[in-house]
Nucleic acid binder design. Structure first.
Lengths: 249, 249
DNA sequence: GTCAGTCCGTGGTCTGACCACTTTAGGCAG
DNA sequence: CTGCCTAAAGTGGTCAGACCACGGACTGAC
């Protein structure tokens, strides 16, 4: 086999690792479903043949990964798959990289462009109605940068959801935290001028229209055009910032 | 006791959670770099004002997330960002979803199509040479399904790398484990017939040519065509499988 | 019937000890 | 002096038992 991913280079699954793997596999195989309640720590430790601290190390690790929900005085429950942990992991993974806030936009474009293509093929009437409704929300919240940003995100998210691809959806949710950070970083700069916001609404409308007409190529083209405008704005904003303050290196 | 960590903005981050957050933030801020060695467990526990079991719960969690490398008798070292954990998290996250092996292909297409667009703009001569070399490898390993599959993956990975986007790269690595699973699942079926393999090589060559000519639209079109062929093969194979009604090994 | 207090099961934490692995420094033989 | 080998020190790994804190359920009084 290929050594693309080598997590278990070593064959020494001792203690907590054994317990961790034990539960992870049960989770993967579906033997443990979301909402299930685990036995008490003392009983589990006895059943698995480890001491309670070791058992707790494994349980805590699973909780940190978002697989368990451990509540004081009540017990440990299997949690449904949650993209927030994915997002955290991605953030951690990308943290040392430079310009990550700009770079993550590329991932966003990648996901959305494929999503809208799929959505053209798969979106239900209900999906389209939901997206249309969000378009209205977008129009209504033009004057409020805060809700406007939320509506913008909701619109794009709805498109990804309409793709019917859970993989795309999960990844999109995973990059959302980073997207948010890059968003708030420049929200003030781009969301104020009427010329921009009106153009923004028009771009969204164009995207939606192509989607409603089930035209993948056109939908992707318009979506890319929308992103390109944002990119252009960002660039201009960057230039004016450096011109205004003159802190070139 | 010196309370190094005092952030009660949230609810009640007690014990191991506090320690976990403490180290996670140091990792995020870059205060702890890859390769750094942590103090001993006893000293850390003392310094952070918790007992050793609690400290160990946090450390173990960080290790499970791939942020630490704890080695018996030697100590705990900060590990460089690793996409394998991301892959595991994604696998866990997507586990309950149906048809995930097919669905993850959509994510692959998404990443690669955007990557090749960026690569057309950003790829260095060295990148192109590397990809060309992998194309040769692909041709040379036509008769061996095993190395052929590896060469195929390496070719596509090189394109993503040439995009210069670490976000795309990390996500691509993250979905790789699932990609592998879906790959081996049908490798036997699609990698044997000469007509298919020759067409496969030609498709790769076309993709590379468009990339070398720095034509984003054409490169993406050819890449999509390549994926569409794979999709078609998969469909036909599915049909023949059901017609044959056999699960021969 | 409702409310309050109590009890019990649960996770949360602590202590201190011992085991296993690794490295290293010192001593012994050549 | 050099080389190997052994023993000690430092580190993570595990264990046991005890106690605390929280939440829910039971039970009693009103």
């Amino acid at each position: 086999m290929l050594d693309i991913v080598r997590q278990d280079t070593e064959e020494n699954p001792s203690g907590a690792d054994r317990v961790f793997t034990f539960f992870r596999d049960r989770l993967l195989s579906g033997e443990l479903k979301a909402g299930d309640r685990l036995l008490g720590e003392r009983e589990l430790a006895l059943a698995l043949g480890v001491s309670r601290p070791v058992l707790r190390e494994a349980l805590r690790s699973l909780a940190m990964l978002g697989l368990l929900d451990i509540r004081h005085g009540r017990g440990a429950y299997v949690r449904s798959a949650d993209a927030s942990v994915l997002g955290q992991a991605l953030t951690l993974c990308l943290a040392p990289e430079p310009n990550i806030l700009d770079d993550v936009l590329q991932a966003r474009i990648a996901i959305e462009c494929q999503a809208i293509r799929l959505a053209c093929l798969r979106a239900s009437e209900r999906d389209l109605q939901a997206i249309a409704a969000l378009l209205d929300t977008l129009v209504d919240s033009l004057d409020d940068p805060e809700t406007g940003g939320g509506a913008d995100y909701a619109f794009h998210l709805a498109i990804v959801r309409a793709s019917g691809s859970s993989a795309l959806m999960k990844i999109y949710e995973a990059i959302s935290p980073l997207l948010m950070r890059s968003h708030v970083e420049r929200r003030r700069d781009t969301f104020r001028e009427p010329a921009i916001t009106s153009g923004l609404v028009e771009a969204h409308r164009q995207v939606f229209l192509a989607l409603a007409q089930r035209d993948p190529d056109e939908a992707e083209r318009r979506l890319r055009a929308h992103f390109a405008i944002g990119d252009e704005l960002r660039r201009k904003n960057l230039i004016s910032t450096y011109q205004g303050q003159g802190k070139a290196s």
